[in-house]
């Protein structure tokens, strides 16, 4: 009896210890989450604050009143160019760029993964080695070439090179294709399918998850790309959102911080949306390609 009681209280203690440990744990990770997300929340809150409150009640996350005019005013843009133009440019840049990248990468990946041809291993090694190349090496001669071609101030220098695919995505898709049982190919080949037919009928449907991952990464890297547009797009009418934001906050004197924060917030919306909807792909993409490949 005594022993049983003792045992009971032990369990009680342990359970209580577990409970406190759990509380401490959640308090800890919760606090960290607050710290991590505070800057973003601050940005969103500032984009909605009345103008006189943004810097006077600077740490607050709750606007005393919601001022949606910040968004309307910010949308006007600058120099007579509204953010509609900038967002349009960014969608062309990121959308078309992603399309080019993903389609080409899939085709090239299939070639390397499933077709045997003379020099394949050599080209494959060369391709992987280009991953190491800093973009700074290519940037200057590419600029000179595109300048000669009269492509400055167009999207061509930012889009055309993407028709060659992206080595990282090619590699990722190759790994994915290697996971598809070769027997499927062989069966199709017996049915008289050409290599192209196998690609479209067998491989393409199977690698959709890899393509989605590639598309997501490609879209949001391109959306956030700054250096490329900075080098090639000089006419404000061609600015992407990233360039426009820099110019907008760099004009010397920002007087309407509400409008600035509103546009900063708005520029993050596509990226956040992608994150929310495709979180699994993103996280898996990093975790798996990061480790296994």
């Amino acid at each position: 009896m005594d022993q049983a009681l003792n045992f009971e209280s032990h369990r009680h203690q342990r359970r209580r210890a577990n409970l406190t440990r759990g509380l401490v744990y959640y308090a800890g990770v919760g606090l960290l989450a607050v710290v991590m997300l505070y800057p973003v929340a601050w940005l969103v809150a500032s984009s909605l604050k009345p103008l006189d409150e943004i810097w006077t009640n600077v740490t607050s996350l709750i606007p005393s009143a919601l001022r949606f005019e910040n968004y309307a005013e910010g949308w006007q843009g600058f120099g007579g160019i509204s953010f509609q133009i900038f967002f349009g440019n960014s969608f062309v840049h990121a959308g078309v760029g992603t399309l080019f990248t993903v389609i080409s990468s899939a085709v090239v990946a299939y070639g390397f993964a499933r077709v045997k041809f003379r020099g394949r291993d050599l080209w494959f090694s060369i391709m992987l080695m280009t991953l190491m190349l800093p973009s700074q090496i290519l940037m200057i001669p590419q600029y000179i070439i595109f300048n000669e071609l009269g492509w400055i101030n167009t999207f061509l220098p930012l889009l055309i090179p993407r028709l060659g695919g992206d080595v990282f995505f090619i590699f990722m898709i190759i790994q994915f294709i290697r996971g598809i049982p070769i027997e499927l190919d062989e069966a199709a080949m017996i049915d008289g399918c050409s290599k192209g037919g196998i690609f479209f009928r067998i491989i393409l449907p199977q690698i959709t998850p890899a393509l989605v991952t590639a598309a997501i990464f490609s879209f949001y890297w391109t959306w956030e790309d700054f250096l490329g547009p900075l080098v090639y797009l000089q006419n404000p009418n061609m600015y992407t959102v990233a360039l426009a934001l820099r110019a907008y906050t760099d004009l010397g004197s920002v007087n309407n911080w509400g409008a600035v924060f509103a546009m900063l917030t708005l520029s993050l919306v596509p990226v956040i949306l992608i994150f929310v909807f495709f979180q699994r792909y993103l996280v898996e993409g990093i975790a798996t390609t990061g480790l296994k490949g």
Binding site: V107, V108, G111, V115, W123, M127, L163, G164, V167, I170
Partner: peptide
């Protein structure tokens, strides 16, 4: 066929 498939990258490179 092989070179055809990898040609986008090859030309781009």
């Amino acid at each position: 066929v092989g070179y055809l498939f990898v040609s986008p990258w090859l030309i781009g490179f």
